[in-house]
Design a binder for these strands. Structure first.
Lengths: 251, 251
DNA sequence: GTCTATAATCCGATAGAC
DNA sequence: GTCTATCGGATTATAGAC
């Protein structure tokens, strides 16, 4: 007798599916608004930023960096001139230089916040998930999507400019990327140990899951145009991945 | 009684797996050597290339374009100066301008060949696969991997510089990308019609398969470092995808 | 056909007025 | 603190010698 086993991962997108955390819940837990990030930048670079009043400095930083991300993500950071940045952000060339001492410093200001955000979120999974690889993997995937949704221009910037980093930055980028893959690989390995996953090559599988997460912020327009919500994407990816690795039993 | 169904897609990487086409077979069918591509470039740009002897022109083009790809993929096309290109390729600034009339023309020379290669290969699936969606999907995935393996620097270049295209180029890039996704979506739709696939959202699934294919040439070092061969990657991706969408029966 | 030398422009960064 | 004006250097592209 033949037992039909459908792999209808799309079903996870229906209302009958498992309930995941929402983007709203993520944002209630973490504040990654431009203002919050830019005040962290101000703290980190108090030495080089010459403006004294914090609220003025933060407001200017928000304008400068939002404009930088917008222009760079359209044409590349290197081909964005500081003249363009000045006029588009409504400041003068001279004013820009009270917030950074070189174009490379502006680059690193942005990148440092991206890596810091990754380790602040993905690096701290709830302890309650330590013994539950399936839910920990789900938590990793959803947290990654929600984080990159909230800071989309920042992550796209880091992804596209990665190759042009001034050497020390390139090394940091590689380590950050490998750290994320390791977190995924650890969850996979734990799942195999618990008898919940069936994965032949753990490293390679983790390496394949990564581009699924990156596509959300790299090709964001593609999904936005098709009306895919962050929550919908999370469920699609989780179902796609689980259908490939979950050890299933039929009744 | 419980019937265990493992989704051991990694098994496809063992010697007992289905036999796919090899990279060698692909290269026997299509000639995408630098020389072959550059003679097509010469034909296409006879108007602007001032060198008369074809074999001299092709040899120079190969040097110019290979150097352009190497430098651009490390630091970005825009930040590669024509002086750098001249010294690295062993030509003078003036000599470069006998092969293109502006830096943007050099950009478009490369991009046109990438898109032309995509439609010449993926656009012509064997007729024998018209009625076999499963094998047609496999053919699409493996052909994509083998093509991008053969022209890796070209595809990486097109991927990274896509955002900076001089407007008309950006539109072509979008159309080429959508065309590839449509080919995948068509195979998925046919498979659903034949009762071989179970896919809830065909467009979204095709959109998710794309980054799996792109990762092969975008993050090539990652896989090379881990000793993954093109054939191994093909089998991994095919198994990963099929385990997610195949309607399976157990004995 | 290829080279050297140079034109015209634009870049990042700074000095000094206010 | 911000602006205007400007510096030295690098860029794309071209002209003219060979």
């Amino acid at each position: 007798m033949a037992v039909i086993v459908t792999t209808d991962y799309g079903a996870a997108m229906s209302s009958a599916s498992v309930q995941f955390r929402t983007l709203k819940a993520f944002r209630a837990e973490f504040d990654f608004s431009s203002e919050a990030i830019c005040s962290r930048i101000l703290e980190r670079h108090r030495g080089t930023i010459r403006t004294q009043k914090p609220h003025v400095a933060v407001a200017r930083l928000v304008r400068i960096i939002q404009t930088t991300l917008a222009l760079s993500n359209r044409q590349g950071f290197h081909s964005m001139s500081l003249r363009e940045l000045a006029t588009a952000s409504g400041l003068s060339m001279g004013a820009l230089y009270t917030y950074f001492d070189s174009k490379d410093t502006l680059l690193m200001m942005i990148l440092d916040e991206v890596w810091s955000a990754v380790s602040a979120t993905l690096g701290n999974p709830p302890e309650t998930l330590a013994e539950d690889p399936v839910r920990r993997l789900r938590w990793l995937l959803e947290t990654h999507v929600y984080l990159t949704e909230t800071m989309q221009p920042w992550f796209l910037f880091a992804y596209m400019e990665a190759k042009a980093f001034p050497k020390e930055g390139r090394e940091k980028a590689r380590r950050s990327e490998l750290a994320t893959e390791s977190l995924i690989a650890d969850a996979l390995a734990d799942g195999v140990r618990c008898g919940q996953f069936s994965v032949a090559n753990i490293e390679l599988t983790a390496a394949l899951i990564k581009p699924l997460l990156q596509d959300w912020y790299v090709k964001r327009g593609k999904y936005h145009r098709r009306g895919v919500s962050p929550e919908g994407y999370v469920q699609t990816v989780i179902s796609f991945v689980e259908s490939a690795i979950l050890l299933r039993t039929t009744r």
